[in-house]
Amino acid sequence: MMDGRRSSRVQGEEAPEPPSSRSRLEELSTKLHRVRAWLDGSGYDAALFTGQPGLAWVTAGLEDRVSRNEEPGVVWALVDASGIHLITTNVEGKRLSEEEGLAGLGLDLQATPWDRPGGLDAVARELSGDARLANDGHGPGTPEPDGLAGLRLPLTPQESARLAAMGPDCAEALEGALRDWQPAERECDLAARIAAALEKRRLLASLILVGGAERRRAFRHPVPTDAVTGRDALAIIVGLRGGLNVSCSRTVCAGVPQADLEARHRAACAVEAAMITATRPGRSWESVVEVGKVAYEDAGFPGEWRAHFQGGPVGYLSREFDVVPGTASAATLITIGAGFAWNPTVQGAKSEDTFIVAGGGARSVSNTDGWPALTVDTELGPMRRPAILQL
């Protein structure tokens, strides 16, 4: 049986240690090689990463936790022939040096006075000089956002290991909050408890959606409101650590679910299982969506895929790109080590977890042994997917 689950850590156990210096150095070496190869092939001498996904990627996990969800960030990274130069203000420089494990990594840290007009931009210009500079959409140089973002795929072995380590934390934060759910609880209160559980595990809540019995049926993206959840609730999260993202969704119900909800949830699980099974090295991402379309029809919901995007590769964004059939990115081939999350929805129901592509099939990183499961038949055998938790 294709289980995909992994053991949960004992409650209260410490979070995993950060990657070793050796592992991070190996990852940094891979990133430098990719950037320099791209520079050589694109006619540039240096690349500037000002956004948070690019910064975390090129530095092997350095996070700009000060300006959450702002672009550009307060820490930039410039890569040239001499190495990686971090650019920030004197406000952040000391903390980065002392708390972010930079010692021994060979990263050059440049801290400019916070009150210097255009300080980060000015330092980037000084460092690059007359070099032909590409940027990710901000700062000096020529914008090349797609080219630089494309370097983030596929994940390195070190990134796959980090993704696998944080997956259980994301799932346990979500599942723990849902086990304490009450039908009278408001959506925003449940979302707050999920956020707190993520933060306790050193995870940023990149996304939290909560839909109660009424709103989960009405909206595919149920942004939490002050509405009372009612007899059931769907919660969806994306957790962020070290720049990497893990997605998962779970549903909870007071007592036995209504037949309609149970049927739709099973259909979503069947579609997701078919897509997980189809996510293999050498296939295109869009071919998996085609498998999903057939699975929707087989489950009795033809055309339902049109109501919501289906997911795709994960990494330094919740989806590095949405798999839209007919686009260049959707036609790219799946590789071993790629992270992915499919998120099929059937009005009011959703099934979603994060996986890593392996040679013998997909490996789950966000399923735990502590959540009930249902079994779906696939061409590779039975697969367990999260069921509706009955309280």
Rank of each mutant, 00 (worst) to 15 (best):
D3P: 03
R9Y: 00
R9S: 13
E14P: 07
S23L: 04
S23Y: 05
R24Y: 13
K31C: 08
R36I: 14
W38H: 12
D40C: 15
L55Q: 11
W57Q: 05
T59N: 13
P72A: 12
P72N: 11
P72C: 14
V74R: 02
V74C: 12
W76Y: 05
W76Q: 04
V79P: 10
D80R: 14
D80S: 15
G83W: 11
I84G: 07
L86S: 09
L86M: 04
T89A: 07
V91T: 14
K94R: 07
K94Q: 14
R95F: 14
R95N: 07
S97I: 11
E99N: 05
L102H: 08
A103N: 04
G106S: 09
G106V: 02
G106P: 09
A111E: 12
A111Q: 11
D115Y: 09
R116E: 13
P117A: 05
E126V: 02
L127H: 07
A134Q: 00
N135L: 10
H138A: 10
H138G: 04
G141D: 07
E144D: 04
R152S: 00
Q158P: 13
A164W: 10
M166W: 13
M166P: 03
G167T: 08
A177L: 11
W181M: 14
E187N: 13
C188N: 13
C188R: 10
C188G: 03
I194K: 02
L198P: 03
E199P: 02
A205G: 15
L207D: 08
I208M: 11
L209P: 00
V210P: 07
G211V: 09
A218P: 08
A218D: 15
F219L: 15
P224L: 12
D226I: 15
T229W: 06
T229N: 11
G230T: 13
R231C: 12
I236C: 00
I236M: 04
I237F: 11
L240H: 05
L244P: 08
L244S: 10
C248G: 10
T251M: 15
V256M: 05
A259H: 06
R264V: 03
A267S: 06
A268P: 08
A268F: 08
A270N: 04
A274I: 00
I276L: 02
A278S: 08
R283V: 03
S284H: 09
S287Y: 02
V288S: 04
E290I: 07
A295E: 03
Y296A: 07
E297I: 01
F309A: 10
G315H: 00
S318M: 15
S318R: 14
V324S: 01
V324C: 01
G326L: 10
T327D: 04
S329Y: 06
S329F: 04
A330Y: 01
A330C: 06
A331N: 02
I336E: 05
G337N: 10
N343Q: 14
N343E: 14
S351E: 00
E352A: 11
E352N: 13
T354S: 10
T354V: 09
F355W: 15
G360V: 06
G361M: 10
A362T: 03
G370K: 13
A373P: 09
A373M: 11
T375C: 13
V376C: 12
P382K: 12
P382Y: 07
M383F: 01
A387P: 02
L389T: 04
